[in-house]
Computed example of a mutant assay.
Amino acid sequence: MIIGVGIDVCDVERFSQTLERRPGLVARLFTPAEAFRTPASLAARFAAKEALAKALGAPQGMSWQDAEIVTDDAGRPSFVVRGTVAAQAEAAGVVSIHVSLSHDAGIASAVVVCEG
């Protein structure tokens, strides 16, 4: 059963400029394993975290660090959730989180489906 669906888009150039103006934002939004990626990849990961929050009903108090995008050997993304995000997912009855990322023509996007 689908618990929630979220989608988000992010302008890569604007996101990159924001990160340049606020260097501490990278550490606040991304885990060390995510932080080394290109601006387009970071924008897609930010969009995924936003989409996940929407799929969970946009609850307050979730830490960006508690939702990490990892990729398998084939490049397929997935979420690793812990702490505040895992607690929200559990409370909503989520047992599986599906994520798709894309970036092209200066726009990064993500779709998240939470399944119970």
Rank of each mutant, 00 (worst) to 15 (best):
A53G: 14
A48S: 15
V113C: 08
L42P: 00
Q60L: 15
F15Y: 10
F79Q: 03
H103A: 08
Q65F: 05
P77K: 00
Q88I: 04
G106C: 12
A67M: 14
R14T: 09
D66N: 07
V112H: 03
R14D: 00
I69H: 04
R37A: 15
G61W: 11
K54T: 10
V113T: 08
G106S: 09
M1K: 13
P39Q: 12
A43M: 06
L56Q: 01
G83R: 06
A48L: 11
T38A: 13
E115D: 10
P59F: 11
I2E: 00
V95W: 01
I107W: 13
V26I: 14
I2W: 02
G4P: 04
M62F: 02
G57A: 07
V9H: 02
V26L: 04
A110N: 06
E13F: 03
A47K: 06
T38G: 01
L56Y: 06
Q88F: 05
P32Q: 10
G106N: 10
V95A: 11
R37F: 08
P32H: 10
E50A: 05
P59W: 09
G61L: 13
V95I: 12
P23D: 07
A47F: 02
I3V: 15
W64V: 04
R22F: 15
A74N: 00
T31K: 11
K49Y: 03
F46D: 01
W64P: 00
A110F: 04
T71D: 02
R21I: 10
G106H: 10
A89F: 14
T38L: 11
V12K: 01
A91T: 11
W64L: 09
I97S: 03
D11F: 06
S63Y: 07
V81A: 02
L42M: 12
Q88Y: 00
A87M: 06
Q65M: 12
L42C: 08
V113N: 01
L29C: 14
Q60C: 08
A40Q: 10
V85D: 01
L56W: 03
P39S: 11
L29E: 03
A43Y: 06
L29S: 05
V85C: 02
L25P: 03
D73K: 07
R45T: 11
L25C: 07
D104F: 07
S16W: 04
D66F: 02
D11S: 09
L101A: 08
V111T: 11
D11Q: 12
S41R: 15
A33E: 13
G75L: 03
A110G: 05
L25T: 09
V26C: 03
M62R: 10
S63C: 10
G4C: 07
E68D: 04
M1R: 14
E20Y: 03
G75F: 04
I3W: 06
G61K: 11
A74S: 12
